[in-house]
């Protein structure tokens, strides 16, 4: 592909840990192919970029937690043709959305020596709560194979293959023994969006729900089963209060069991 016709890509960061952006750098073997296919015009993790002109594709990591960021995301929308959010923070507010259920002023007064220097919103919210986004890629962090799929699909002008069914389907595709049925290990896989390839169960651990709710989650039914496995209400509430705590089906379930 001629250089001039390569789409311009930007990777933007908001409140997040950088883990999702690093998934892009983690594509070691494919990185050259990525750089061949698109012009990585702005990417703080990899280049000393410039913010100028327009971008064909903007990947956005992180959630909106400050008034300044709420402004900046609008600017990014204005200069981008396609906006794709990457990761749990950008898609549901991330672990920092736990603040949405608490008093932020109280937090800041405990954590910072000069809380008056801190300018922050009371909430951590998803990018889609602020602007229109074309696609949301799940995961904490995102799966690099899925990221490559999203970029490849964008370049080919097709829909990315990122099914929204349960993690259980992925367990079964890889032949993993169900940790909940065979070991009694609590697992959020039945209510969690696929994409990781059922990573945790393949290491004999229950799913923590880092890809957020699947397409039609029935969290109350799963919680009832977790209670039958011996989990107490507090523990059930905590299980839903992680990387996607503010995603609606998980938040509602936490509220049903939490204080």
């Amino acid at each position: 592909m001629a250089k001039a016709s390569r789409p311009r890509l930007a990777v933007w960061k908001f409140a997040s840990c950088d883990g999702c952006q690093l998934s892009l750098l983690d594509c070691e073997d494919e990185l050259l192919a990525v750089a061949d296919a698109i012009d990585i015009a702005y990417f703080m993790e990899a280049t000393r970029g410039r913010i100028s002109g327009r971008y064909d594709l903007s990947l956005v990591e992180g959630s909106i937690t400050t008034p300044h960021d709420a402004e900046r995301i609008r600017d990014i929308r204005r200069i981008s043709d396609v906006v794709i959010t990457i990761g749990a923070c950008a898609t549901s507010g991330g672990i920092q959305a736990l603040r949405n259920f608490a008093d932020v002023r109280e937090y800041t007064s405990i954590v910072y020596a000069r809380p008056d220097y801190i300018s922050t919103l009371a909430t951590s919210t998803a990018i889609a709560d602020h602007i229109r986004v074309e696609f949301e890629l799940r995961g904490c962090p995102i799966n690099k194979r899925q990221l490559l799929e999203v970029v490849s699909a964008y370049l080919a002008g097709r829909k990315p293959v990122t099914p929204a069914h349960s993690v259980c389907v992925e367990c079964k595709l890889r032949g993993t023994v169900c940790v909940m049925v065979a070991h009694g290990t609590p697992c959020l896989g039945p209510v969690t969006h696929a994409g990781c390839g059922a990573l945790c169960p393949s290491y004999n651990r229950g799913c923590y729900g880092c890809f957020g709710p699947m397409e039609t989650p029935n969290a109350p039914a799963l919680s009832q089963h977790l209670a039958e496995l011996g989990m107490e209400d507090r523990a059930i509430a905590r299980l839903y209060s992680t990387f996607n705590a503010d995603a609606e089906p998980f938040r509602e379930e936490r509220e049903r069991h939490g204080p």
């Binding site: 349960s166 259980c168 389907v169 079964k172 595709l173 039945p190 029935n218």
Partner: peptide, 13 residues
């Protein structure tokens, strides 16, 4: 429907 997780395990196995 109240109990079913629509997880798909039954069909996979």
């Amino acid at each position: 429907a109240e109990r079913c997780l629509t997880c798909g395990n039954c069909t996979m196995v």
